[in-house]
Design a protein around this nucleic acid. Structure first.
Lengths: 240, 240, 240, 240
DNA sequence: TATGAATGAGTGTTCATTCAT
DNA sequence: TATGAATGAACACTCATTCAT
């Protein structure tokens, strides 16, 4: 009896998880086809082959679906490509760092185009706090950590600023990339990486950063300072 | 008699044009509040204080409103800030060129925040061709012309690529800027300009470009070539 | 002065008549294209190149347009084909009588296809009293007169019944005819005439009817009675 | 368990089918009151006492309602009066054939006046293909089959022509009949039957047609040929 | 748990008609 | 006389969400 009591709920939970997966896949399809704002819960339920009522047993509204989908996507991405925002990556030469971070997202977006739809969020302003901001915030935070590892001397405020810029530009660039068809995408990818490289070079240096062991940290800082000066002399011109 | 025949119709049009202005203002408000996709024609009419039928006497649908509004905004911006994409601006030092182009848009967007909503367009994928593409395309084209003046040696394909990147990044950056409140915006503006500067420096040089007058045009080209090489050595690193 | 007083109104009336003609032509076009029920006054005004307000200065509503159009059409048809429902025609041999009455309408409908739309009326039941019934009633009355001339012995009630049947069937047959394209119409016309012929033959006789001069009217009646018996022996079978 | 799985969905359908019946009845009422073209889906929903959304869960649009209603009506008619277009009926004496076919329709239309509204269809020209054409075409086809049984020597083209004429005339006659009130209808019914009788007599003969069993079919054909010649000598007069 | 029926305010759009000019 | 702007209820149809089963 007690066994049955335990098993039944588990079965139900298992079924529930399957339903949720089903619904999230359907939501991904619909979001991609129609855009987030224009997607309807009825359409998602239909796509999932379940009734509207069933959908509302797992999600209280459309936003919750987007939030959950974002979480699942992020999780899936990590499972597929391993941790992207690792300290090891943070210390790579800049070009390799950019590859290490952007390639997985670009690749991932090819098989899960809903990823872009979610990080872009709805065109409705103000309403974005609840919803796709989960994804947004977590990714910006990851970039901030990356910066903290690579450039510990940078102020938290500047880190936040730079991280937001990076993520925003990557998002916009990815959007531009996926608007291209087939082979036309590659030049856009390269251009996006160039942009990030040139933007970051004077801020975080171009060369690999050795792990901050015992001593001599100041020297590393100095080195990187030089790199920066060399890498982008334009950065010393006024505001630029 | 013939005078009256001519005057009478104009009076009607005057009232009509007043309504159109009213409706466009209402549309601007609604687009900003709700986003383009979620804005309804009925909401616009309500905001304008007219009946739905009245709206449809002047605009056949929502897209037409967006198109007209885009046109009016561009016109208004030009009236306020003058032509922005001029050959003279194209030949300025890069930092001043960027100021000359971005400042009016940023400034203008402060009093007309619908501008951003329009260039962002609906979040519906694929459907963007008809309406806000007017704005989009015209601005990208303007950037292409700017590049053509400043860097005639650049291939058309590259010009298109770079112009799209610039516009896309500016759009995204502006979005980021307006998400900030009050004084917090300024650092974002500066960062956006830095980004554009560093991105463009190796492509179009940082210094003023003399007008291609009588002699020695090839020499000027050479000079800029040198600038570029000096400005961003990182550009020679692999794909970056 | 008194001249001016007289001329001005006349000019206005002349203009008015022109406007009315213009509007009626437009209405004819629209009725034919969209059907009566689906035709809108705005569409008629647009087709006529005038404003909705102008239309309502001449017609209080859509029905009034249909009524007036019916009148004009009837008038025009008479002007074109002469009086169709004449006592002379009534006395022709039946086949020639049918030709004399139906051919003008069929011909006329080729150049004025709105004719059919009007005699068919809207598919809305009950509302037809005011509107196209003018045309309908006047035509049924004409058929009744024809019968009265040709078969004075027929009771008024029977005349009414037969006239209505004739007109109804002609209307329906004409509808069938115009649904055919080009040369396919001719067989339908012939079939329609056959139908009318066979229907009427036992009722009004097939041969010419001499004018009812002084004497011998009863003889004529007898003759026609014989014709009928010969023409359609089936008519004596029960209800048929 | 599997039983419950099967029963549950059926219960839902039961409620749904009740609603469908309700909606179709409401549609019948509205079509009769307002005519097909002027009937609105909202009005049907209102008449059925449900919300517009409910209607659209069962029917995608107005036409679908008409189609379904047509189907139900034909089915109901068959359930009430049995098959009407049977080979047995086709071989009856003409007067009894006409009774056998027309009486059920006339009778049925008394309790289901929407039947006429549906076979009349919208007054919009050209647009009639989709919806009520189901009814129209199926009935014309039935008449064609009747003719095929009764007069196998008739060419397919002629059968089609005659069937269309019969159906058209019956439709128009029925319309005329229902415009009359109470007892006034009977004479119109008789007149309509006379008309059909006289029209068809020379084409399909007036007498019963024995089934084409073993021998001597050609003789039967001959007999009917004679009947025809005798029945309507007018048929040999020119076009008539 | 899952269904699918139900809702009712919402969408974009049209209409016959009126009214100020 | 004629305009064209204005109306507001109506249209066909959709939506996120709820509820009885």
């Amino acid at each position: 009896m007690s066994e049955a009591d335990e098993r039944a709920p588990r079965r139900r939970q298992a079924r529930g998880e399957r339903r949720i997966t089903q619904l999230l896949q359907a939501a991904a399809t619909v979001f991609c086809t129609a855009g987030y704002t224009a997607s309807s819960t009825n359409a998602i339920a239909r796509e999932a082959g379940v009734s509207p009522g069933t959908l509302y047993q797992f999600f209280p509204n459309k936003e919750a679906i987007a939030v959950e989908l974002s979480g699942q996507l992020l999780q899936e991405m990590e499972a597929t490509y391993g941790q992207v925002f690792t300290p090891e990556n943070a210390r790579l030469p800049l070009d390799r760092l950019i590859d290490a971070v952007t390639d997985p997202f670009i690749e991932f977006n090819k098989s899960n185009p809903v990823f872009l739809a979610l990080i872009k969020g709805p065109d409705t302003p103000g309403k974005l706090a609840e919803d796709h901001d989960v994804l947004h915030r977590s990714m910006v935070d990851s970039v901030i950590e990356l910066l903290a590892v690579r450039s510990p001397s940078m102020s938290p405020a500047e880190r936040a600023l730079v991280a937001q810029m990076c993520f925003t530009q990557f998002k916009a660039g990815l959007d531009l990339v996926v608007q291209q068809e087939g082979e036309a995408r590659e030049p856009y990818v390269r251009e996006l990486k160039s942009l990030l490289y040139r933007y970051l070079a004077p801020l975080v240096g171009t060369e690999a950063v050795p792990e901050a062991g015992g001593g001599d940290q100041s020297q590393e800082q100095q080195d990187r300072g030089k790199q920066q000066a060399k890498a982008a002399p334009g950065a010393s011109l006024g505001a630029h």
